[in-house]
């Protein structure tokens, strides 16, 4: 009934006074997928999540969850979302069970159902032993689990976690990742992180965000291939278009190519190589053999590469 998409975001833009946080972002997330929003701080990940969870309205564009508009059917959407904001805010003065019970009731569960669900999530996240402890006295790892338990207590279809492993020690991070991965299938997950490694470990698909835009969206494997490969090579060659097409089609290393006419006899050829191949020497050889004039030959360092560097750098400094 809704094409199977759990999240459909189209041309989403969010402007704050004097600042654009999210600009013309479009993406889809299928049911049961784990999708990671990867990007440095300030890339617009949190804002996107806040819009999806119904906390903030978009300036323009549309966002739908399970086929429902997040702003118009806000309450119905909120019923279907389990959202854990950045830094996992909790009420520190409450006890674990009491807090989860409160949250379950707030999310509209009946008294009996909320008791069942609270017991279930306490069990699921290994919180049964601390259920009577005061949240403020728990370790960060436990508090993280309380936040996750809260996000899941009303059995939402979609779970949105903003930086779920932030501030945890390596051991806690590993266990949090395992927990998150175990949720796949039954739930759809949207997770934000600024850690490339983490996104690769947990997510089926990664959206890379920078300065409010989505720059790439693909599986971790494909993104890696994109990185490892020679990327795109641009050559300007003076030759008949048909001959160029024929040659490129015959080259096994060329995955896709695109020709556009320039001034004079020149054609601007944009070629994408298969993974790991640098096409430049071959193109030079081709031009030399055929006697064509080659006036430009450049390899586009894929912009993703720069982003990866930017995304991963803060993490390296931390370690």
């Amino acid at each position: 009934m809704n094409d199977g998409w759990m999240i459909e975001v189209a041309h989403l833009t969010k402007r704050f006074a004097g600042r654009t946080a999210v600009e013309d972002v479009s993406f889809q997330v299928g049911r049961g997928e784990i999708v990671g929003l990867l990007g440095p701080n300030g890339a617009g990940k949190s804002t996107t999540m806040r819009i999806l969870s119904g906390f903030l309205p978009a300036t323009s564009g549309s966002a739908r969850v399970a086929g429902l508009d997040v702003f118009r059917d806000s309450r119905e959407v909120r019923r279907r979302i389990g959202y854990m904001p950045e830094n996992n805010p909790l009420h520190p003065e409450m006890r674990v069970r009491e807090y989860l019970k409160f949250r379950a009731r707030l999310k509209g569960l009946s008294r009996r159902r909320s008791r069942e669900r609270v017991d279930a999530v306490l069990e699921q996240f290994g919180l049964t032993d601390v259920s009577r402890r005061i949240i403020g006295q728990l370790s960060r790892g436990y508090r993280q689990r309380v936040g996750l338990a809260d996000a899941l207590v009303h059995e939402p279809e979609l779970i949105i976690l903003d930086e779920p492993t932030q501030g945890l020690d390596p051991h806690q991070i590993r266990s949090a990742r395992e927990t998150i991965k175990s949720l796949a299938g039954a739930h759809t997950l949207l997770i934000s992180t600024h850690n490339l490694h983490e996104a690769e470990l947990m997510c089926h698909r990664i959206l890379i965000m920078l300065d409010g835009r989505v720059l790439a969206a693909d599986t971790p494997e494909n993104l890696q291939k994109l990185m490892a490969g020679g990327g795109q090579v641009v050559a300007e060659i003076a030759a008949p278009a048909a001959a160029l097409r024929e040659c490129f089609a015959a080259m096994p290393e060329v995955e896709t190519f695109d020709l556009s006419a320039c001034e004079g006899d020149y054609y601007r050829c944009a070629l994408t190589a298969r993974a790991g191949v640098d096409l430049r020497p071959q193109l030079f050889a081709l031009a030399r053999d055929r006697g064509w004039t080659l006036r430009e030959l450049t390899r586009n360092r894929h912009s993703l590469e720069d982003i990866y560097v930017r995304v991963t750098r803060p993490e390296e400094e931390e370690e």
Binding site: R50, S53, G54, F55, R75, E76, R78, R79, I81, Y83, M84, P85, E86, N87, P89, L90, H91, P92, R103, L106, K107, G108, D150
Partner: peptide, 14 residues
């Protein structure tokens, strides 16, 4: 201040 405003306002409560 503590951020719980966000968890509160994202529940289906008006």
């Amino acid at each position: 201040f503590s951020g719980t405003f966000e968890t509160l306002m994202t529940t289906p409560v008006s």
